[in-house]
Design a protein around this nucleic acid. Structure first.
Lengths: 173, 173
DNA sequence: AGCAATAATTGTTAACGTCAATAGTTGTTG
DNA sequence: CAACAACTATTGACGTTAACAATTATTGCT
């Protein structure tokens, strides 16, 4: 086993505000690209990054980030969720959820309510304002997707969506 | 425009070592999921995250991170690249490249060589050890991809890869 | 009643991206 | 050809962030 280059655990922060140094266009025909993007997994990672960037750029107008959006989206489909639930389902650390919900509460998009059965837990619910906000930003999401999927025709987009759903649907989450 | 919740620019660090709190399996049939994963862009982001996680888990045995891998991969297809080139093509800050190449050099996977034409630039080249390492980790990459693309049959994987390449190939980079 | 387990939270630490500044070098142009 | 603008790699400082440990309050078990 090799020594860690910087004596630390691997980590991979990804999305940045504007990405000052923007990656130049990816050209699949270039020789280095064949190697770099030969693997679907890595390709997926790279595109996920780009998608997140675009999403964040749109979201940034509202002062929220992708993580907030994920929480809101989750809440929208589950009227009321324990923070613990948000943590496990979304894959964020419990301590991260605290800040996220704090932010959403400050903006009036969500509320913490006491749980009737368990006084330790708080139930996080979406406010009507939060729901309205979500509706608005969904349009932004559509624009992003449109940007991202530029070169694909509708049928191909549908196919891609289906395939991605298949992948997501499996045990990997 | 709303006020930023934490008076800071949006950012979205993504990949973590093991992701202690691992997202539970995504089930497209659940009500909240329909909303959350309805959008292809967001779905792509989420899947990219997961792919990166898996990749990093494999890479972590060697003490490297995805970024190092990206650099190595680039070098493998371009025998010799200026750091500036790495920066623009990979989308990392020039100052980040310095540390990355430092690490790779320390591990003996890459070398800095003086450029004949321009004494400012250094040419970064892959060593034979670096190439060997890359070959080894490529297997890991294959395993990752295999994990990730579990529910898809070969034809579907091919289709997905093609679609993703189309997206990557366009001007978005 | 006592003790392990759990939910939310706080605090600490280390890493990371961003930006500004610097040193060395090249190209340009007045 | 000399002065100056542009560029490469690098360093340093700053603020933000994620990850982890520890804490508090509460519940369940036995």
């Amino acid at each position: 086993m090799l020594e860690s280059p910087r004596r630390t655990e691997p980590r991979e922060p990804a999305i940045t505000r504007q990405h000052v140094t923007n990656p130049s266009p990816i050209d699949a025909d270039e020789p280095w690209m064949r190697g770099l993007h030969a693997d679907t997994g890595y390709l997926l990672y790279r595109l996920g990054l780009r998608s997140g960037q675009l999403f964040n750029t749109f979201l940034q107008e509202s002062g929220l980030r992708l993580r907030h959006y994920a929480v809101l989206r989750f809440l929208a489909g589950s009227d009321g969720a324990l923070q613990r639930e948000l943590s496990t389902r979304l894959g964020y650390d419990p301590s991260a959820i605290v800040g996220l919900v704090d932010d959403l509460e400050k903006l009036g998009f969500a509320e913490r309510r006491p749980s009737p059965d368990d006084r330790r837990s708080r139930i996080v619910v979406l406010t009507t304002e939060g729901r309205a906000f979500l509706r608005d930003t969904d349009e932004a999401g559509l624009r992003v997707t449109n940007d991202l999927l530029g070169p694909l025709d509708p049928a191909e987009r549908e196919a891609l969506h289906g395939l991605l759903l298949r992948i997501a649907g499996d045990g990997l989450g």
